[in-house]
Nucleic acid binder design. Structure first.
Lengths: 244, 244
DNA sequence: TGCGGACTGTCGACTTGTAGACCGACACGA
DNA sequence: TCGTGTCGGTCTACAAGTCGACAGTCCGCA
């Protein structure tokens, strides 16, 4: 539990995009934490007290509980491009979704109240977080449409690509069971899809591990949702739309 | 194209929840417009110049284009409880989803820049819009999970209940074709579901019209998503969580 | 009054995906 | 090294949902 170094701050893309001045507003309130897969960042129904910024290869996701099946479905994936916590709601409200660590790694943590206070002082800070919120919403929009219209095979490919983009890694510790649960589908069918991908040389798997061998081929197998989301992130967070 | 009356302002729940003082900030910039089904409020890719507040029985929805099928899937429904436009993004960004009128009616329109200016002056206004944004996100979260795990029959029931809650009406002009497209599913299967509901006395249908006869029975047929969303709206926008 | 287009109903073949069961393989701790 | 529990692979029966085709029906309009 220490304050973040400059390098750690820049390990999160959302923080690195801020003006030096705004980053300096937040840094003193931040704490570095190393978390393991399955650690819980926020629980549905509880107040959003902390906000988390994944660094490097860390990965987290938002999961929505489904009454009927007694399990959670993943609705958004967050890596070093974003943040989890009082982003859209500006804090002080019950979280609707649970957020869980998917890939172990380093996170920066700030009290949502401190983040809010900083936002009051800086319009630019407010704007960048609003932009990220917009991207988050876009991502979930696309996921909703995707879940309604694409096959499990496409969605599996999409998940692997999204995880790759958000971590910079090509290997993920994850059982097929867990992947199936996240996608909200049956395990045996995921196994079939995985075998197909593996036989085609697109991925490789070991017990509890997925490895992407051929990202381009995976993109072919995925749906257009992957690029739709990437394009929106690019436009909104990487300069196609000027900030002011 | 006239300025709204007090009654029209209160016809939208999000506006009615504001302090009189904040409502007065917005009112002079607002325009009353009557729109027809299929009118487009915002187009994906275009800047969000206007923000819209449905009144009374008006209904709009966010639709995401799906490349592969060449059609749009609905990801959120907005009625008098909310707004469409620069809510999450705070405007000045390309819309990710297209927004279309579903049920004709009266809308209040404000330039997003004017809404932004008012938000700069009033913290309470910012807070209420942040709360609504949070509810919107929750709604889309739930839709994503729902599309991944519930049957078409459940989702059909859910859609009718959501439309009822957002308009106060029990009848909707809508072909089975359109409903199927919104849900992102085949038309013939929706027809089967509709027939089943009708035979059980839950709904009645005429050419191009759906009517809900037994809301309680419809709730039984729907998934838990309906109440999950309602509960979050209640908590966040109707006083369970105090504003300050 | 008759025409044409949009909407609804129905059928059947097909694909996708589910649910449960079972087995072998692997990993890890005692 | 021996269990024991988790994980992956496979099979079967079945349910859910798609897709195309076609017929009937309603409705506005000429």
């Amino acid at each position: 539990m220490t304050a973040p170094t400059a390098q750690e701050l820049l390990g999160n893309a959302l923080l690195s995009i801020l003006k030096e001045e705004d980053r300096r507003r937040l840094a003193p309130h931040m704490m570095v934490m190393d978390l393991e897969a399955k650690d819980v960042l926020q629980k549905a129904g509880e107040d959003v007290v902390q906000t988390w910024f994944p660094c490097g290869g860390a990965l987290a996701s938002f999961c929505v509980w489904v009454e009927e099946t007694g399990s959670s479905v993943e609705v958004a994936l967050v890596g070093r491009e974003g943040a989890i916590g009082g982003v859209v709601s500006n804090g002080r409200l019950p979280a609707f979704a649970t957020s869980e660590v998917r890939a172990a790694g380093r996170f920066l943590r700030i009290r949502t109240s401190a983040l809010e206070a900083a936002k009051l002082e800086s319009i630019a800070l407010r704007h960048w977080f609003a932009r990220y919120s917009d991207c988050m919403l876009a991502q979930v929009f696309q996921t909703a449409a995707c879940n309604a219209s694409h096959t499990i095979s496409q969605r599996t490919a999409k998940w692997l690509l999204a995880a790759m983009a958000r971590t910079g890694e090509t290997e993920f510790q994850m059982t097929q069971d867990q992947l199936a649960a996240m996608l909200g589908v049956g395990r045996t069918f995921v196994t079939r899809v995985v075998r197909q991908f593996r036989e085609q040389g697109v991925i490789e798997t070991r017990r509890g591990v997925f490895g992407v061998k051929d990202g381009a081929a995976l993109r072919e197998k995925s749906c257009s949702c992957t690029t739709a989301i990437e394009d929106h992130f690019d436009a909104v967070l990487h300069g196609i739309y000027p900030v002011e």
